[in-house]
């Protein structure tokens, strides 16, 4: 049981030392706001581990375990099984990890959970690099993006987490964004109510790593959605619903120009990326049977 030293209006403390303008902070407040107290959260080391606290001080008041970087889903599966064997089928067991801990080092244990259909809810907040260790590139860093380990811009395209999840045919997975918080909250509720593994892939702008002013977090998130750099859709029992459809995508250049990390992309690269974004969007529409 927590000793409450400073009250908060939700389950997350108001004073957590996430960077000013941190997208993750807004995500975790909304996620726990929907899930409520009957939740056990598993968080790997990384930015989100700030919410597990430091020493005796906690940043959230829910039960939880800080795991290792690669086994968030594995701990969650064990916890869910332990609860189930004691007759507790109601508690939401949530794995909450960044892109590095999900698509890189954690993809194996996540794949295991999805294949076994363990009733675990998993959220990947994707700030598109290893931010907590100092902005190193991950397999979710977008093509062209500067990181400290892709100083010349990332030469390859990102791994597509949702298509990996769909390949496992889990009952529910969706992308979400701070561009549309009500939609994000609705998806958290759906993921919670899913009987089986569920996965949310949430775009998480990071002012520190993406090189933009902290006040622009929502603006950047919106621009990503409008340009098609981040597509909002759901996969539910085998059917894809595209949540945000466009007559025409805004130029990717608009999204890129809001951030410092794409400064190294030249005109030729920009045209190529623009083409990739367009064909990805069209491929999604085709997958959803809309074209």
């Amino acid at each position: 049981m927590f000793d409450i030293v400073k009250e908060a209006s939700g389950l997350v403390s108001h004073g957590v030392s996430a960077c000013a303008g941190c997208g993750l902070e807004l995500i975790i407040r909304n996620v726990l706001g929907v899930l409520g107290e009957d939740t056990t959260i598993v968080i790997p080391p990384g930015c989100s581990a700030l919410f597990c606290g430091y020493g005796p001080n906690a940043g959230m008041r829910v039960s939880g375990l800080q795991g290792n970087l690669e086994n968030t889903a594995a701990y969650a599966a064990g916890i869910k099984a332990g609860y189930a064997m004691q007759g507790n089928h109601h508690t939401t067991v949530l794995g909450f990890a960044g892109d590095g801990a999900t698509v890189d080092i954690g993809i194996q244990s996540l794949s295991g959970v999805m294949e076994r259909r363990d009733k675990v809810m998993y959220i990947c907040y994707d700030n598109e690099a290893y931010m907590n260790t100092g902005i190193q590139g991950s397999s979710s860093s977008p093509v062209g993006a500067w990181t400290t380990t892709t100083p010349g811009g990332k030469p390859t395209r990102r791994k597509d987490l949702l298509r990996i999840a769909m390949a496992h045919d889990i009952p529910y997975c969706a992308s979400a964004s701070l561009a549309n918080i009500p939609d994000l909250r609705k998806k958290v509720q759906k993921a919670k109510d899913t009987d089986g593994p569920s996965l949310l892939h949430i775009h998480c702008p990071c002012p520190t790593g993406w090189r933009y002013h902290p006040s622009k977090t929502i603006e950047v998130a919106k621009s990503a959605v409008q340009s098609g750099a981040w597509l909002l859709y759901e996969y539910c029992d085998g059917n894809i619903t595209v949540n945000t459809k466009f007559k025409e995508l805004k130029p990717i250049e608009v999204y890129f120009s809001l951030q410092g990390r794409f400064k190294g992309v030249n005109d030729e690269g920009m045209a190529e990326i623009q083409q990739q974004v367009k064909s990805q969007y069209e491929a999604l529409l085709a997958l959803a049977g809309l074209e």
């Binding site: 598993v42 375990l65 795991g67 290792n68 690669e70 086994n71 594995a74 701990y75 969650a76 599966a77 064990g78 916890i79 099984a81 332990g82 609860y83 064997m85 004691q86 194996q108 244990s109 794949s111 295991g112 294949e115 076994r116 363990d118």
Partner: peptide
């Protein structure tokens, strides 16, 4: 739990026993 590695085997066991 038919795990996909020993790393996961131990992680599941730790998680479960903590409950």
């Amino acid at each position: 739990i038919r795990v996909e590695s020993e790393h996961t085997a131990m992680s599941c066991a730790v998680g479960a026993q903590l409950t």
